[in-house]
Design a protein around this nucleic acid. Structure first.
Length: 724
RNA sequence: GCGCGAUUAGCUCAGUUGGUAGAGCACUCGAUUUACACUCGAGAUGUCGCAGGUUCGAGCCCUGCAUCGCGCACCA
């Protein structure tokens, strides 16, 4: 009897939840619970650690792509007999989450700075936990066959322990230092950043030429110049030959008479402006370096909120934005303003989140010396131990690693893993202290207080692969590390991927993954970046509800080459909904027309015509397998789509109508066997891409009596092997 | 300034090692008690950014240029 359900159109809504439950309850998402007959103890293993989802919102289209692509990899390998582990996780996403939460506070008319830190932490934790439940159900809706029993969160005690151990080891190896160094500071968020959180924006602003004693100096930031008492020029600049290094000059400046000191330094570009500049070491990285080289005094002009300090005289307490025109006015009144170039183009460093101009500040922070870590990573990458898909990301990574800078890992926010260190109130020294053992400052005997800062979130996620696999003693670490593939967004290649390689190598001695597969952004139908303010955000759940998850997955995968952005249009997804239904009907035709025919696994009496078709199918399948092994899912999916629709349905099924009606008994039997055989193979081959509809058809058709007979753990339809 | 991509049909994009240019959507004409209207058949649409070069043969390899996008960079 043909199952009643097959007579109606395919209904994803009715199917998906039930099928996912079937899979999940089988336990087969867990590599340890796979049927031992097909997956013996010595079976090959395949593992992917899922990029931990930021627990501060809900799934967006980009997550949809992650889930689709990684699930395809995992399902494919599982069908090929690998014990597959796909380990899901959530990221507290320190600063990112804090920003999201602060926006919410703003709407409520509250400010993070008015909330007691402990209370704020509790609130954000609640917020995060609320989101996580939601996110997890969304990941399930995408059909992700990940092992929920191994799920991890970046704030889990064992992860934190690993992070602390790494911090300690870095310290013991002399790779961590606490330095009073210039850092990038966002006055709005009031935290420091690493160089990656900075966005360079080209701006056109007035450029002021100011009289500084006998010199003319130029600046785009007159409001920072109050404390400038060093005037710097190139030692070989003939124009200023008569001024000697260290020479004192009395001159009239913004707030009155000062004594300036001449400094000669080779960083000065003689061609630029007048070849003379004054320096503001507390608030400019170049100036900081100069003052370090020459042992000059440094003075803070701007506070943490971006307001001027008492040194600015009558401007004290003013924000720099307000102060600038007033300072210019005063300079003008004093006759110190020589000229203004109104259209000066230059690069301004801004906070990547809020666009506020970065105000560099000198702060005592924890830094990691990156050079030694980067060198090891470069060796492995250059030796080809990591394959990049697409390839050009390798060059980008190498370039970044070769020019790496030290990593400031201190963040002045509450939402994160606290830095396990003590700070001396008297001398500012810091001591890594995991066991709360150090009582007084080892340098000056001063009193110690716990470090109030938290780690940069990437410091913890940078250790994710070995941390979640429970390095060093976990069985998972032995069985699944290094992982096979790291699939994530090309956007975070430095933030995350490169750092995982460095930290993974440093701690375990091995690269954390063999293949890096990077996908591009998911854009809207017009190719524009999705953003809440533009109102063009596509919610994956709306699309899966409307067209089914299988259609959504196909739409994300086909025509999407790694590394390239994808414009996601609803038309495209609708087209693959049609495909799911088409395939449903192919199955219905085959099942209806082969009723009563027993399946013979190795049928040998094909008619010449069917033998040819059989060969054609084999070729198509091995071709697809080659693509699968080469991670060309966009091609594999398209080929299967084409075969199923335009070969199987349009050609083979159409001509079968005549054969099944009019041909000889032998020919009929041959065709029926071929149809059964083909449907079986195509169901298997399409399963990684459209898991729900294929499993549903499989269940209706084969009516398996044991969970081991699910399509999810069935064998891939060809033994052919592509390139590794 | 240095580096990395992209440029192929009206739109969005494929094109794996060089061998007669492809898909989806859109478009035109036709079919209809059908496995499927979430359908089928037929069709139109391309100097593959430009200029050279290598080759029997180039969308693909090499050189240069243009346009767009991105990343990196301490010029006050």
């Amino acid at each position: 009897m043909i199952p009643e359900k097959l007579l109606k159109p395919y209904n994803p809504k009715e199917t998906e939840e039930r099928i996912y439950k079937l899979w999940e309850e089988s336990g087969f998402f867990n590599p340890d619970s796979l049927p031992t007959e097909r997956y013996p103890l010595n079976a090959k293993r395949f593992s992917i650690v899922m990029p931990p989802t930021n627990a501060n919102g809900s799934l967006h289209a980009g997550h949809g792509l992650v889930m689709a692509v990684e699930d395809i990899m995992i399902r494919y390998k599982r069908m090929r007999g690998y014990k597959t582990l796909w380990l899901p996780g959530l990221d507290h996403a320190g600063f990112e989450t804090q920003v999201v939460y602060e926006k919410q506070l703003e709407k409520e008319g509250r400010s993070r700075f008015a909330i007691e830190p402990k209370k704020l932490y509790e609130e954000i934790l609640d917020f995060t936990l609320n989101n996580s439940a939601n996110i997890k159900s969304q990941v399930r809706k995408m059909g992700a066959s990940c092992d929920w029993s191994r799920e991890k969160f970046t704030l889990d005690p064992d992860i934190v322990k690993t992070v602390y151990t790494t911090f300690k080891k870095l310290g013991d190896d002399g790779l961590i230092y606490r330095g009073n160094r210039i850092v990038s500071w966002c006055p709005k968020h009031q935290t420091s950043f690493s160089d990656l959180e900075i966005e360079d924006v080209e701006k056109t602003e007035p450029f002021y030429y100011l009289k500084y004693g006998p010199f003319t100096i130029s600046t785009s930031r007159p409001e920072t110049k109050f404390g400038d008492k060093y005037v710097v020029m190139h030692p070989k600049d003939n124009r200023y030959e008569k001024y000697k290094d260290g020479q004192k000059i009395e001159l009239e400046w913004i707030s009155g008479k000062i004594t300036a000191t001449v400094v000669k330094d080779e960083v000065i570009d003689m061609e630029f402006g007048t070849g003379v500049m004054t320096i503001t070491p507390w608030h400019d990285p170049v100036d900081f370096e100069i003052s370090e080289r020459h042992g000059l005094l440094k003075e803070q002009i701007i506070d943490e909120r971006g307001k001027l300090l008492p040194i600015a005289g009558e401007f004290a307490g003013m924000s720099i934005v307000k102060a600038r025109p007033l300072v210019v006015e005063k300079l003008k009144a004093k006759g110190l303003l020589e000229k203004v170039d109104e259209k000066y183009k230059h690069v301004v460093r801004t906070c990547y989140k809020c666009g506020t101009t970065i105000e560099p500040q000198i702060r005592n922070q924890w830094f990691i010396k990156m050079k030694p870590l980067a060198e090891k990573a470069l060796q492995k990458i250059n030796a080809g131990e990591i394959t990049y898909i697409p390839e050009h990301y390798k060059k980008i990574t190498v370039h970044w690693l070769e020019n790496i800078r030290d990593w400031n890992i201190s963040r002045q926010i509450v939402w994160g893993i606290p830095i396990p260190a003590k700070i001396c109130a008297a001398c500012g020294s810091g001591f890594i202290d995991l066991e709360n053992k150090i009582g007084t400052c080892e340098k000056c005997g001063g009193e110690l207080t716990p470090d109030k800062d938290t780690f940069d979130t990437w410091f913890s996620s940078g250790q994710w692969p070995f941390a979640v696999l429970e390095f060093p003693d976990g069985n998972d670490f032995k069985n699944f590390y290094p992982t096979d593939v790291m699939e994530t967004a090309g956007e975070i290649i430095f933030f995350w991927v490169a750092r995982m390689i460095m930290l993974g190598l440093y701690i375990t001695g091995k690269v954390p993954f063999k293949i890096v597969y990077l996908h591009g952004l998911v854009l809207d139908a017009k190719g524009q970046k999705m953003s809440k303010s533009k109102g063009n955000v596509i919610n994956p759940l709306d699309l899966t509800a409307k067209y089914g998850t299988d259609a959504f997955r196909m739409g994300l995968v086909i025509g999407n080459t790694p590394g390239t952005s994808l414009a996601l249009s609803e038309d495209k997804i609708r087209a693959y909904k049609h495909f799911a239904n088409k395939f449903w009907n192919i199955a219905r035709f085959v099942i209806e027309n082969t009723e009563g025919e027993t399946t013979e696994a190795h049928f040998t009496e094909y008619s010449p015509k069917d033998a040819a078709l059989q060969k054609e199918l084999q070729t198509a399948l091995s071709d697809v397998t080659v693509d699968m092994d080469a991670y060309r899912f966009y091609l594999a999916a398209e080929k299967l789509y084409h075969y199923a629709w335009h070969n199987l349905a349009d050609r083979i099924l159409e001509e079968s109508k005549d054969i099944l009606k009019n041909a000889s008994l032998e020919e009929k039997r041959s065709r029926k066997q071929f149809l059964i055989h083909t449907l079986d193979k195509i169901l298997r081959a399409l399963h990684p891409f459209i898991p729900f509809v294929t499993e549903e058809i499989w269940q209706l058709w084969k009516q398996p009596t044991a969970k081991e007979q699910m399509l999810m753990v069935a064998e891939w339809p060809t033994a052919a092997k592509g390139r590794p």
